[in-house]
Amino acid sequence: MNKRLTARPWKNVFIGLTLLFLYLPVVVIIIFSFNTSKMNILFEGFTTKWYGLVFHNYQIMAALKNSILVGVISTALATVIGTTGAVAMSKYQFPGKKTLDKVLYIPIVIPEVVLGISLLLIYSLVGIPLSLFSLILAHVTFCIPFVVLTVRSRLVGIDQTLEEAALDLGANPWQAFSQVVLPLLLPGIISGAGFSFALSLDDVIISFFTTGPASTTFPLLVYALVKTGVTPEINAISTLLMLVIVIGIALNAIHQVRKMKQEG
């Protein structure tokens, strides 16, 4: 883009206002997580007690445990299946490849409620009880396409001849993949996995249809609480979760910026 069109203060003001819009509720949550009053109305005094109390709240901890468990397992499965799938699709021709390519976009573009009810229907047809297991199946399903897309966009940038060069130098196909292609693919795989984990952790709609009462997730718990009133404990644990994710993204951004500076 054109550098000479830049540097007008109102442009930065617009950027600032948009970011303010995105961050306003986040800031509210953080502030109220330190509020002494249980009512999220006005800030009445500073306290960190909710950060202690939340870890003794059985309901929140159980939901959080479910969410993290589902997130980790789904991410691991989706990353392995999605990465091997993306690599295979870039490398081989096989019958049904075009169809598979189209099907992968369904979970991305279809309204989540439709994917949710379709899985609910099939679970009831086959007789899979609504549980953590059914939830994991659902989460892997909507995570795979994002992993494929991320890995594929990275694969495009990898020179095909590198793999040939490795074979030429005596590597067997597995060595060529694991020692040359995989290390180059790793940033894509990591961001695909990160993307999956974030999607899984925040999913409301699909989880709503595919989990049972005994395996409620953190977002679904918040959904239930929003109507009656969210407690500062939720604010506190959300702030902690955000902190973890922000650190992750910040590390990634710092890494990218460093790399850019190195490259000039």
């Binding site: 020179d159 001849t161 590198l162 040939e164 060069a165 490795a166 290390p183 180059l184």
Partner: peptide
């Protein structure tokens, strides 16, 4: 062994 046109050196 082959010397490739674009070198095909392993960037990692």
């Amino acid at each position: 062994n082959t010397v490739f046109q674009n070198y095909a050196l392993f960037p990692n």
